[in-house]
Design a protein around this nucleic acid. Sequence first.
DNA 1: TACCATTTGTCCGTATGTATG
DNA 2: CCATACATACGGACAAATGGT
Lengths: 87, 87
Amino acid sequence: MDDHPPVDPNAPKLIYVQVADHIAARIAAGELAPGARLRAERDLASEYGVAYDTIRRATALLRERGLIITIVGRGTFVTPEDQRPGS
Amino acid sequence: MDDHPPVDPNAPKLIYVQVADHIAARIAAGELAPGARLRAERDLASEYGVAYDTIRRATALLRERGLIITIVGRGTFVTPEDQRPGS
DNA sequence: TACCATTTGTCCGTATGTATG
DNA sequence: CCATACATACGGACAAATGGT
């Protein structure tokens, strides 16, 4: 079966951290621009081949880092420039 | 059937918040003294009649508030005086 | 107003991994 | 090695918020 490249269950790093890091890299690379909407969490889950719970942990991490913001009923967005935490 | 008094699924407050508040009240009342060990999370879950996940959310809340600390393999403890956050 | 699709949030139950003693 | 306890990961069900029809 297709495996999901960025996620390695046998790696020492936790899966949700692997996912968070991968998304963070996509943001850093500009592939996901400020203000851009990410795919729905459930879609990200199947995309990465992980459970919803795992995506929730990953996005929680990214929210803590200020990289994304999420609005219920709307979606998850790369933090726009005008809402970035000062430092 | 026995319901679990401090938890009301129909109340407007979220269940994990209800549980957290109830535990916080027990701490405030001195029923759970600083340094005291709480019951294991799985035991708390069946005690309160809620799922493990819900207890995890409740304890996460209490940890954020600095009311408890948890050590894997040991248990969950009311934050001792000497480890309380400054304010 | 009412309805509906989309999306995040909560809650449940289970299995496996890791740390402690 | 074993028992206890927290941590991560999985998957599913229902609720709540949002925006458009």
